[in-house]
Amino acid sequence: MNHDSYPDAYIRGILNTVKTIAMVGFSPNTARPSYFAFKYLIERGFKVIPINPGHAGKEFLGQTCYAALADVPEPIDMVDIFRAPQFVTPIVEEALKLTPKPQVIWMQLTIRNDEAAKLAEDAGLKVVMDRCPKIEYGRLSSEISWMGINSRTLSSRRAQNLGGGFQRMGLGQGKKEEPSGS
């Protein structure tokens, strides 16, 4: 995978497939980016499990927080990492020991660790670096366009309403790929 720019189809494929996301480096501080992404992804129908040893056992938005990936009692589809690049490799090593193995390692906006990415890709996982799943979901669902953001997508098809409210959009089925803009 070229990690400098991802095709929309790759990102859309990941967000359309994963259901359970473990968020490593989750902060219970509601002003932090990880809390933003946590809350948003739950509202869009993902199961998001917070991982933070300082808050293990507590519940946030109804989700139990665990100290480590190995403590999570259910299969994890994607590990979303909110930690500085130098801490990423051990987290990926931990993720690769899980059974079943997760399908995706996702490193947040500004976080990139190519060594860790290679470990994961060699084990057959998909990797995304330096992106935020909240922003990518918002971009590909067109929700982010309400904020004047350049979604770099064009389409002559109506965006899909997710239901359960007015301003909640879905990702479509990902079969019809639109061109991505500049």
Binding site: N150, L154, E177
Partner: peptide, 16 residues
């Protein structure tokens, strides 16, 4: 096709 970058005329009509 899926990753084609549209030209200026196309964006002027479709972007957003």
């Amino acid at each position: 096709d899926a990753e084609r970058i549209p030209g200026f005329n196309t964006l002027a009509i479709h972007a957003g």
